[in-house]
């Protein structure tokens, strides 16, 4: 197992190097002088020159990348053009909010998605199954930012008017209390919930057809125990993988959800920074989310190998 984990981490090094190179290189795609892009359009010529010297922008590309990588490893992501604060600090303040939203969304998606999948599989080809799968398909097809907007309409406009209230049931924007968390969590979870429901259904159907389930039924094990103790336990292995992979996808989706609900996380920081052409922050946030995405994927692989020992030997 240790060897597998080690191999998996070694495998990630070239991928992370490649991804960081792409982020580093992206500043060259911006039309004009990269030094001005990094220092900001309103920067003084002295500051632009200082940035050029610091980042080695007059050196060959591999050396520039080496300097960049060294700075990243020390946690030095440059300075925000907009706020003048270190990018690392800007991200550090906001990251917990994004992680909080992502974590709750994942939990919510699993809590609803897996039972729907189980229900669908145990009642395969009935109207309950059809309804659940239509629900899942809608969840996959719905743009999460639109769902967010619709939740705002419902909780801040429709529901209060039905109840004869003058104020929103839930706060439409901001963060701080659990009420603030409800709408962004649902919006971000919708896609993931639908995928988990579909995955659980497929996995459960496969398991429920297997011989040991037939044996369990034949020897008179109660149906509930057949489904949950014998069925779901074994069906969970691929589902756990999907849940893990969803965490990374949700980190990306947080960019949209945070924009809809003015949630003060790093997704919103990224979108705001684009408006201000704050490239050091754009590069920093993209890199942090990507590194998180890659690490989570490795953890999922390791967890999968732990749950299913056959994986380690392939």
């Amino acid at each position: 197992m240790t060897q597998y984990i080690l191999r998996r981490f070694l495998w990630a090094i070239p991928v992370l190097l490649g991804a960081s190179f792409l982020v580093f290189w992206s500043i060259r795609w911006v039309p004009g002088d990269p030094a001005i892009a990094i220092a900001g359009e309103l920067a003084t010529p002295e500051l632009v020159e200082k940035v050029r010297a610091e980042l080695g922008l007059d050196q060959p590309l591999p050396i520039q990348y080496g300097i960049y990588l060294g700075r990243m490893l020390r946690g030095d992501m440059g300075t925000s053009v907009r706020s003048g604060l270190p990018v690392f600090e800007e991200i550090r303040i906001r990251l917990p909010r994004t992680l909080q939203l992502t974590f709750f969304s994942l939990l919510f998606a699993a809590a609803i998605g897996i039972p729907i999948g189980v229900l669908s599989a145990t009642r395969a080809n009935t109207w309950i199954d059809a309804l659940s799968m239509i629900f899942a398909l809608l969840g996959v097809s719905m743009p999460i930012f639109w769902l967010g907007l619709m939740l705002i309409v419902f909780f801040a406009l429709t529901l209060p008017s039905w109840l004869g209230l003058n104020q929103p049931i839930l706060p439409p924007t901001g963060a701080g209390t659990w009420q603030h968390l409800v709408m962004p969590t649902i919006a971000l979870a919708a896609n993931s919930m639908a995928i988990q429901a579909r995955m659980t259904r497929a996995s459960m159907l496969e398991v429920l057809r297997s011989d040991y389930i037939r044996t369990a039924r034949a020897k008179g094990v109660p149906e509930f125990s057949v489904v949950y103790n014998h069925g779901l336990r074994n069906a969970l292995i691929p589902i756990v993988t999907v849940i893990g992979l969803q965490f990374g996808t949700l980190l990306g989706g947080a960019v949209l959800t945070e924009t809809v609900f003015a949630w003060p996380g790093i997704g919103r920081l990224l979108v705001d920074s684009i408006g201000y052409r704050d490239y050091p922050v754009i590069q920093g946030t993209v890199l942090v989310i990507t590194v998180g995405f890659v690490l989570v994927n490795i953890l999922v692989d390791v967890l999968y190998a732990y749950l299913d020992p056959r994986i380690r030997y392939t």
Binding site: G18, V286, I289
Partner: peptide, 25 residues
């Protein structure tokens, strides 16, 4: 395939955002 792995290392919407932010909306 390693080059493809690098592109897949990004959550897809994020890579699109990075590109559009750099090239201009």
């Amino acid at each position: 395939m390693r080059l493809m792995d690098i592109l897949l290392a990004f959550p897809s919407i994020l890579l699109a955002i990075l590109m559009v932010a750099a090239f201009g909306p």
